[in-house]
């Protein structure tokens, strides 16, 4: 996994609440067996007409807005557990998603892919939306070490919460799986000591 330390970028605003993972990547695009290429269909049905032409009023089709940070309304990533949603956002080129609330499974999936979910207050989220609305070149700075997010050219800064274990993983580019594999002896001992009154199947 890629390391995440500091990110300075302009941002793409998507001020809609309860964006579910079926919008991020519709189920009919989940048939690939690799992790790559999902960015082409990110927000597919909001971004394209059925004939494949772009919907002009969707934010990703507006050349004014670009950058590595997606800023979205409350309860981002609800619904299906599909990790394809995090892959699609990362594959499109985003490195962080900012919202005032994230669905649990999406948050975990994002963290497992080096895509940083940053949870800010509702009022700070509104300040970000306003700043981008006033100037599409307004930048954001996300500092993982300090757990801070600031709006450039202003004194606005907020500190966000972060699971200490996941912070170490992101700062160093560690995967959970490396850690779990290092635990195998402890896991086997646990199994020996915890024989349930039922047996493994087959």
């Amino acid at each position: 996994m890629e390391k995440f330390t500091l990110l300075q970028s302009t941002a793409v605003p998507l001020p809609i609440e309860d964006i579910d993972t079926d919008q991020i990547i519709p189920a009919r695009f989940l048939k690939a067996t690799t992790r790559e290429g999902f960015g082409d269909n990110l927000f597919r049905d909001w971004r394209y007409q059925p004939d494949g032409s772009q919907k002009a009023d969707f934010i990703l089709n507006n050349p004014i807005y670009k950058g590595a940070i997606l800023v979205a309304g409350r309860n981002f990533g609800c619904g299906s557990s599909r990790e394809h949603a995090a892959w699609a956002i990362a594959d499109y080129g985003f490195k962080a998603v900012v919202s005032s609330f994230f669905a649990d499974i999406f948050k975990g999936n994002a963290l497992n892919n080096g895509l940083l979910p940053v949870t800010v207050s509702d009022s700070f989220l509104n300040k970000i939306f306003e700043a981008i609305e006033n100037d599409s070149n307004a930048g954001l700075e996300i500092n993982l070490e300090n757990q801070s997010i600031s709006i450039s050219n202003s004194s606005e800064v907020e500190y966000f919460e972060m699971d200490p274990y996941k912070k170490i993983c992101l700062l160093n580019g560690y995967d959970d799986i490396d850690f779990l594999l290092s635990q195998k002896t402890i896991i086997s001992t646990f199994e020996e000591n915890n024989r349930y009154p039922f047996n493994p199947i087959n």
Binding site: S81, R82, E83, H84, A86, D104, I105, G108, N109, N112, N113, D163, Y165, D175, D176, I177, F179, L180, L181, Q183, K184, I187, E191
Partner: peptide, 22 residues
Amino acid sequence: FGIGTSQVEQVLASQCLLQLKP
């Protein structure tokens, strides 16, 4: 509970998951 594909890999590899108690 439902998990993502990275976690599917973790369980296949170790029969365990890293979880914060909800």
